[in-house]
Write a protein that binds this DNA or RNA. Sequence first.
DNA 1: CAAGATTAAACTGTCGACAATCGACGATTA
DNA 2: TAATCGTCGATTGTCGACAGTTTAATCTTG
Lengths: 249, 249
Amino acid sequence: MRPMSLPVGLPALADSDLVGQIARILMQAIVQGRLPPGSKVVEAGIARELGVSRAPVREAARLLEKQGLLVASPRRGFFVRKLEIRNIDEIYDLRLCIERHASVLAARRLSPESRNILRRQIDVLHRTADLDDPARQVEEDYRFHRLIFEIADNRRLLRLFDDLAAELRMVIGLIGRLYDDPHEIARTHEPLLAAIEAGHPERITAHVDYHIGHAWREVGRLVRELTTPSGNATEPPGGILFPTNGVSV
Amino acid sequence: MRPMSLPVGLPALADSDLVGQIARILMQAIVQGRLPPGSKVVEAGIARELGVSRAPVREAARLLEKQGLLVASPRRGFFVRKLEIRNIDEIYDLRLCIERHASVLAARRLSPESRNILRRQIDVLHRTADLDDPARQVEEDYRFHRLIFEIADNRRLLRLFDDLAAELRMVIGLIGRLYDDPHEIARTHEPLLAAIEAGHPERITAHVDYHIGHAWREVGRLVRELTTPSGNATEPPGGILFPTNGVSV
DNA sequence: CAAGATTAAACTGTCGACAATCGACGATTA
DNA sequence: TAATCGTCGATTGTCGACAGTTTAATCTTG
């Protein structure tokens, strides 16, 4: 968990990044269902529980606000964003929009190296599908799509994708189970890559539409299922961030 | 300026929004050329000059960071974003992407009322063109495009547009002059609206491409002109936020 | 005289405190 | 009884302070 400083290793980084750590802890608490959607995030409470002051907690909350996990209400505080179906639709609508664009750009900039990177990531997807590790599968899936944005080479587009991905990860985390068969998911990336290699904008767009549209419908269906039986946003006992699972802390 | 509370009027609101006020002041300082691109924004300095503490200044800076006017470097502070040509290209590329999408959506959702609103805004554009008020002209131009996003009815898309617009306003403010003939600009909105009314996705896309692409090229040209003669990012004398224009403060 | 080491100043990250504000609850009034 | 008005605790907005880090200036040294 705690990255140790290697003799020459660079990434000893982010150990003193208090804000980042807090943001990650909060994000986990959200996707894992503590801090349920709609619940209030009390700065002082989080700060006390983590043994820090309110300042970094506030900054972390703003970070998560930018990513859409929290919403800020002036003088009232931060709240965990409720996953209304409308939000899901808006997110996927935007994602579809930028992913079409990024895919066409990526096709234009595709080099043999970048092609191989995508190819290899699909292999990873297939291998991960055998592992029965939903979280990992989702992660590798996003990695593939992120690669497309990297190849498209527009930093702003990439940042936007990262933000959307963070939000979608929350949604999927809240859903709790994978929205489809892992092997099936891995397979559907093949024709997308093929279209990008071929470089026909229309074909690329069509495949992106199919691919993302599929996820959209599936996630939408599950969210609708999950959201109709009235969410009881009660706070679980034993501390929000590090709940006592029977074992004392 | 100061909204007074009417007998029954509601909007007496948002006067005590310190962070918002600071953000606005900073934004003005940026677009007006004090705080030139690349210069450092010192929290304590701003705070002292405004007679507030560092906390709200920090929050305002984060707000402007989200809008892309500032960039944060950990442990080094906030800097006014340099307008490299690459940023301009990335911004316009993204804007083109989402504006195509929004325009097609808007066409699908277009009602007689929303059509008239767009129609009327074009009239405003024509009238404003006679006023010889570049800032106003740019503002009304953005209002037209924002209306398209409102009609498209995706809040996230709208928010994204607002962020991009804020950044583009900074760029245009730094350029200092309008990038084209106001009347010409007003006229080019006509065929775009016509295409949206007709509802043909291809025609809409083509017109958006032409319209935004034109601005892209123009702004790109001016920025290239402006950015090549090496920016000397020295700090103007007399206080950054309220420079003494000969008159003592 | 230039490159590197050293010192001093400036600044950010974080903290604890206080006042203003919000929301809940109970008292008051019609 | 229902609606309105205070009151009180909880929570945010803002402040000033301090420590560690970065940057700038100064001093060595080859």
